[in-house]
Design a protein around this nucleic acid. Structure first.
Lengths: 216, 216
DNA sequence: CGGTTAATTGAACGCATTCAACACGAGTGG
DNA sequence: CCACTCGTGTTGAATGCGTTCAATTAACCG
């Protein structure tokens, strides 16, 4: 039962699931300001979150201060489901945002519901899938390829302008690069007319084939 | 229910779970020779595997031939549980090995068992946890730190000689480095009397504090 | 043993980083 | 409206870490 995989991607279709129903019923709405911390690294895993609007990033800081961004979350995404008793990553509001959250204990009380368990399992699966892609990106891609792959992942393959809500530092910490390298790669891609930046945090793809070819 | 996390680490304690019971009941034993492929990248996810003896690696090859090692699995570990309808990684026998495997459909038929579902969920959680560590290692660690962290992860913090069953190439592809760099870092660590290599694929830690300090 | 593959070592190169200076844009106050 | 400031992003030059290419040595297996 749990092993039967859904084909569709939660991030894209967001069907009304038992989980989202439960969130709508029990999920208290909370607002967070830009740069506000939603939960801290080391905190006990206490809530399950659903992002209604805005963008969230998860980050992990090593003992000596290096930062790794785990992922970015957008409206409709569930987050806070970490694979341990406490958070390895912190979650921070990248923009002002609205989230729904329910205590895990509430989820449990609601539980025994097979469909709900399955939905939570699905979310964990997606997370694993994305994390595996992240490993591939970090392990075997050049700076140019990393940046191209990142831009492509933001577009959702749809035409039109895309909003980069994160800073260069956020991108760099996600890609395992420095801000300078990210900036240089962006400049280069623009110079080659593959992407265009009307503003530092807004872009559109001008040559999809080329971008995809670089991203691998 | 599914959200209640077990504290203990399956890799270490391997308690008799509903899953292992089921594997023992239904799991046909199969042997694989060194370097034999257990399943290929792109194959449909069909079996759930449990490693009885030997070592297995999962690998992913990009279009242009670069290789990323996903993880290494040891006796007692479950693998083949990938987060999609088909395998993003291939699994290969690193040494001669014995595995038990059951069709996913059999797991499903056996299903409805909440405990079993939970066990499968737990395995997926562990996988995610390890993959997140892998991201951190690849994203923000130097070659020296990567190699130190890798050696440390193999020891299980127990004293005595540890067997490196994988080649330098396997290590390199796991760490996002080249074999030459791996070799140089190992030589350096040995020169500093932090580890010792009686043979190319056998080592012992001589200075745990130093090794841990480097690994972060 | 020899034959073959794996691992190490050396030297030169190059990609990404580091350090530093400059440009740009948004917000604020004169 | 312009001047000033501060945070963010870009660009340049020099450095260095890890790679690449090549040669040597060690380990493994018949």
């Amino acid at each position: 039962m749990s092993l039967a995989y859904a084909i569709d991607d939660f991030r894209d279709v967001r069907p009304a699931s038992p989980l989202t129903e439960m969130m709508d019923r029990l999920g208290g709405r909370v607002g967070f300001d830009r740069d506000e911390e939603i939960y801290a690294q080391g905190d006990e895993v206490e809530y399950l979150y659903r992002l209604r609007s805005g963008v969230v990033r998860t980050t992990r800081i090593t003992a000596d201060g290096r930062r790794q961004v785990g992922d970015f979350y957008y409206a409709g995404d569930l987050f806070g489901l970490e694979p341990g008793p406490d958070h390895q990553f912190a979650a921070e509001a990248l923009t002002d945002c609205q989230v729904q959250r329910v205590r895990r204990s509430a989820v449990r009380a609601f539980g025994g519901d097979v469909e709900l368990d399955r939905a939570i399992f699905e979310v964990t699966r997606r997370e694993l899938q994305r994390t595996q892609e992240h490993v591939l990106l970090l392990g075997r891609k050049s700076a140019r390829e990393k940046v191209a792959a990142f831009l492509l992942s933001l577009t959702g393959r749809a035409p039109g302008d895309v909003d980069l809500s994160m800073s260069r530092q956020d991108m760099a910490d996600y890609l395992g690069l420095t801000i300078e390298t990210v900036s240089r790669m962006l400049t280069k891609l623009q110079g080659e007319s593959i992407v265009e930046f009307p503003a530092a945090r807004r872009f559109r793809v001008k040559n999809w084939d080329a971008l995809e070819a670089i991203a691998d």
